[in-house]
């Protein structure tokens, strides 16, 4: 507490020795004591944004913690190095409860993107910040990720989702042009699937603003949720559709005349009855404005 001294960067100016419930009597020993044994870790850590900030703060405010800002006071650990838990560890088997790990990170990183960490699916499933982040070395170009990219980090657990992005239609995630975190906030959000915005559609509109409308004539399930027709992580249909056209549409449409006929391969090109309702893009060939029409003559989403 108190005002920082000198020109400490504000984000690190209040850095304090982390609280380790497993070593309540431990005292801070200072960075030099730590690096006496952890020279290699120190080399790697020096390659990170955390090191830049903490050391700049320590330079401006002598005595400000560096290693112990995250790992807690080191005296008990220095006295008994093999004893787990005497220092706050962020690795498997380190002996520090996950809750202590996350609270240690949140001591500086609370708020903002992490406002809704508590109760989020990742928190409930016992993930630690360091399951996804490695602030002790440079592994990724940005974000202090545990793997080389955000997407590869998510794929540690969500390999099934990552595999879906290899399908015929997908967003450019395998191509490195977007990330899981463009749509999801893995730290917790106001929606169950950890979306960054208030709804599915608002998330999609971030890149597909032309679909936002509102249109003169709306298509109810489109306004309800883009996911009614599209699967976001990859599809073997055209345009991320959840089912082949026209059956996608016929899940909801059974109107008189042409929409509720059962189409068969006989209606494909080369068959006895080529039929535009199933060939090519099927229904969308005529109902081209399927996301909504702004034409006064477009209630059938055709103009």
């Amino acid at each position: 507490e108190g005002k920082p001294i000198g020109d400490a960067p504000p984000g690190f100016a209040y850095a304090a020795v982390a609280h380790n419930p497993a070593a309540p009597d431990a005292k801070a020993v200072g960075e030099q004591v730590c690096t006496a044994c952890h020279a290699l870790e120190n080399d790697h850590f020096s390659h990170t944004l955390h090191a830049l900030g903490l050391r700049a703060a320590a330079a401006a405010t002598p005595g400000a913690p560096v290693c112990e800002a995250c790992h807690g006071p080191g005296s008990a650990h220095a006295a008994q190095p093999p004893e787990k838990g005497l220092i706050i560890g962020f690795t498997h088997g380190a002996g520090t409860p996950i809750e202590v790990q996350t609270q240690t990170c949140l001591a500086c990183h609370q708020g903002g993107a992490r406002d809704h960490w508590l109760g989020s699916v990742h928190q409930r499933n016992g993930l630690s910040c360091s399951d996804c982040h490695n602030p002790m070395g440079r592994v990724s170009p940005e974000g202090s990720m545990a793997r080389t990219s955000i997407n590869e980090t998510c794929a540690q657990c969500h390999r099934d989702i990552r595999a879906q992005f290899d399908r015929r239609s997908h967003m450019p995630l395998p191509e490195g042009q977007m990330t899981c975190a463009d749509c999801h906030n893995p730290h917790g959000s106001l929606t169950n699937p950890l979306l960054k915005t208030n709804s599915v559609n608002e998330t999609c509109y971030q890149c597909h603003a032309e679909k936002r409308g509102p249109f003169l004539f709306e298509h109810a399930p489109v306004r309800g949720s883009c996911l009614n027709c599209h699967t976001p992580h990859g599809s073997n249909q055209l345009s991320l559709l959840v089912a082949p056209v026209p059956f996608l549409c016929q899940q909801c449409h059974s109107h008189l005349r042409h929409p509720n006929d059962l189409q068969t391969p006989q209606s494909l090109a080369g068959g006895p009855h080529p039929d535009e309702r199933i060939m090519g893009r099927g229904c969308i060939t005529c109902h081209a404005q399927i996301h909504g029409s702004n034409n006064p003559s477009g209630p059938r989403l055709h103009k």
């Binding site: 993107a113 974000g143 990219s149 191509e175 042009q177 990330t179 463009d182 749509c183 971030q206």
Partner: peptide, 13 residues
């Protein structure tokens, strides 16, 4: 900032 906006990653295939 992972809480707001897109373009968190800029790279290519």
């Amino acid at each position: 900032d992972s809480g707001v906006g897109v373009d968190l990653w800029i790279a290519n295939k």
